[in-house]
Structures are given as structure tokens and as C-alpha cells.
Design a protein around this nucleic acid. Sequence first.
DNA 1: TCCTACAGACCGACCAGTCGGTCTGTCAAC
DNA 2: GTTGACAGACCGACTGGTCGGTCTGTAGGA
Lengths: 214, 214
Amino acid sequence: MTHAAQIAKPGVPASKEMQAGKTRRAICEAAIGCLDEMGYADTSLTRIQERAGLSRGALTHHFPTKEDLIAATLDMLLGRSVMTGKRVERAAWSKLPDEEARVRAHLKWLWERLVRTPEGRSLMEILMAARTDKALGKRTAKSLIEWDARMGTAIVEVYESPDLDDADVVTLWAICRVFMRGMLAHERFTRNRAEETLIVDRFIELIAPHLKLR
Amino acid sequence: MTHAAQIAKPGVPASKEMQAGKTRRAICEAAIGCLDEMGYADTSLTRIQERAGLSRGALTHHFPTKEDLIAATLDMLLGRSVMTGKRVERAAWSKLPDEEARVRAHLKWLWERLVRTPEGRSLMEILMAARTDKALGKRTAKSLIEWDARMGTAIVEVYESPDLDDADVVTLWAICRVFMRGMLAHERFTRNRAEETLIVDRFIELIAPHLKLR
DNA sequence: TCCTACAGACCGACCAGTCGGTCTGTCAAC
DNA sequence: GTTGACAGACCGACTGGTCGGTCTGTAGGA
């Protein structure tokens, strides 16, 4: 049995656990790419492994089952988008003079930089898969609900309601996320990007007056 | 080669083409059920065939490829929901005294009777699959865009804008559909149906003032 | 000398799609 | 009206390929 020489990673290998973490991240990254480009149905372990430039052994070493891999990828995706609210202050458009224009810019940024991205799309793929795959659904339930809660507490630090309470801000924020995720699927109905932009902009116009920056 | 006796259909067989149509419909119905309950990834031809109570031969006779089957199922799903607008007048809630209450009831009906159903969910599964499956995407593109256009012309017969033009009604109607489809995926984030209802109701509250019955 | 990171051969199950064969309703020729 | 050729509805065994997952083995840092 002739084993090809182990490919010595050229970059600094650092300590073992650091290397392991790096590999795990590379695998999840590859999974995100596959989910985005091929959809959940065509995202196989073999394809993820090839995309990550690893062997089957490496994959199963870090993630014994596919469910483990998807769950880890989901956690990575969610982890990346918790800080959304916090960033609000520092972003370039925070200098806009009109307050409502700033809210609109924030929502547009959410759509373009967070949802309409490989990450947003792969999250959507996992959500849809978790709907029917009971094992995956149960496995991911906790992460999803907790993330949703954290999202709620984070957003009330940024926005307040002009005439209702904080709970309404949380609800409106959920509506935004729901709409934008739905928009990812609506792409199929539109002839071009302009139609898509029209719908998103109208939605933002609809919701912006009900959100006030703190 | 001993072939089991053909199963003589007990119900009235009618003419050949009627029988064929009935079988095709049964297959699509089975596909809808599978898509709803198992998702696109786990909807195999074998499972559809078993659910429809037919042989593999029957399935491939009517639909040579899986793509053919999905496309036909999609057309069936779209066909069922064109008449949405027309029904508006006759529905029970059309007797409600307050105009805006009638709009709200209509939107709620849309959510509960059209989107949050096996049909709505299976449509969503196909939309998501068509996003990454290029062949399926190309195959279904025409149906989807045409349906969207028909939906637009149908809705302006029912609604008008209180202070904008018909084009805005079309956009708002698209926003409703986008939101509700997104809601199908959001289910995973919510603890219970009450949270779900809260979000949907708030959305309806947001949009109803911008739609006026003709 | 372990233990961990990784390699890759391998497995049974299942996939979409193919194919030879068996029925039965339809219809034209007689 | 009977018959016989034909079309099409339907059957189920089968194929090549892919799936997720298992297992044995190697390399190298601690």
C-alpha cells in the first residue's frame, strides 16, 4: 500500500490544536461554498472534502457525521452575524444627515452585505433542510432559538420604536430578516436585478418609519 | 419470467387519456406530499412512486426524467394559486364591515390557506432547488416569471393604492408573497406558533393600510 | 511512546434512469 | 358484430454511479 507523502502545509503550522481549528474552519468554509453554489441536496461530503483540499479521513476525523458538520457550519454562520447590531455605529453611512436615511441605509446594508451573500444563502439552505430533516432540526434548534434571542436583545440597543415599545422593535427586526430570507427564494420570479431592488427598496421604505435610532 | 397480474383499477377507469391524466395528477400529488414532508433532498423517485402506489415503470412512462416531474408539479402548484385574487369577493370575510379589516383578513387567509400549506411548502422547496440546479432553473424560469406577471395583473383588479399607482400594488403584493415564503423558513427560529402569529400579524398591520379594495 | 491529524481504500444502501415485457382500450377492416 | 393490429398504460428487474459512513494505516509533534 503506497501512501502518498503527507502534504506538509506550507503556511505556519503553529501548534497542533491551532492547526486542527484551522482545518475545521476550512471545512466549514468549504461547506458554505458548496451550500451556496450547489444547494443542500447536492452538497455531499465528497464535494466538501474536495473543495477543502482534504482527504475523506480528515473530514470524518473532525466531523464524524454529516450532521456534525452542518451543525458546526451553522454555528459558524450564526456566530458571524451576531455583531450586526454593534457595527451599526461605526459604519460609513452612520454619518448621513437624515435619521431615516440612516435607518434605510442600515437595512440596505443588511440585505446586501449579510443576507444576499454566500453566507446568507447557505444559512437559508440549512434552515430549509432542518425543516424536514428531523435529526438536524432537533440538533440545531437550540442554536437557532438562542441566536434569535440574542438578535432581539442586540437590536433594541440600536433601535427604539417611535410610538410603541421595545417588543415591537424585536418583531419588526424579525420581519426584516424573514422578508430578506424570502427574497433569496424570490429571485427566481424576477426578470432582473432591478425588479429585485425595487421590491427590497419598497419594503425598506415601509419599515424604516417604524424604527428610530437610539 | 412470471409477471404479477396487472392491478385492475377498481374505480371507474373511464377513457384512456382520462386515466392517464388521473395518474399524472396522482404522481404530482405524491410529489407535493414528499416535498412537504421530506424536503427536496430526500424526495426520490422511488418514494414518490411508492406514495402514489405505482410502479417505477408507470412513473417513468409519464415523466421520463425527474426534472419533467418536478416541472409538472410546479405547474400544477402555480395553476392552483392563480385564482387567489378572484376568490377575494366571495370569501366569507368579505362581509366584514371595516374595509381595512377585510384587507387584513384577506392577507391572513393568504398566509394560512395558501402559503402555510403542503402546497406552499413544496413550492418553496422547488424554488430553493431551482436556485442551484441550473437545468431545473432554466426549465422552470418561464413558468415562474409568467405566473408572477399574471399574479400582478390579477391583484390590481382587487386592490388599488390609497395614494400611489397600480405598480405599487403589484410591488406590495410581491412583498407579501416574499415575506410569507420567508416565514416558512423562519419557523425554525420560533419557540411556538404564537411567536409566529405575532410576526405575521404585525407584518399584515404594516402593509394593510397601503392596500385598498376596489 | 503515545496521541492526534490526516490519508485513502472500502462498504452497503440508495439514487436516477433503462429496458424488455404484459396488459387493455380503441378503431378500422371485414 | 367480430376480429385483429396497434398504441399506450403499466410492471419490475437491472445498471452505473454516488451517497454517508467505516476502517486500517502513516506521519510527526509532545
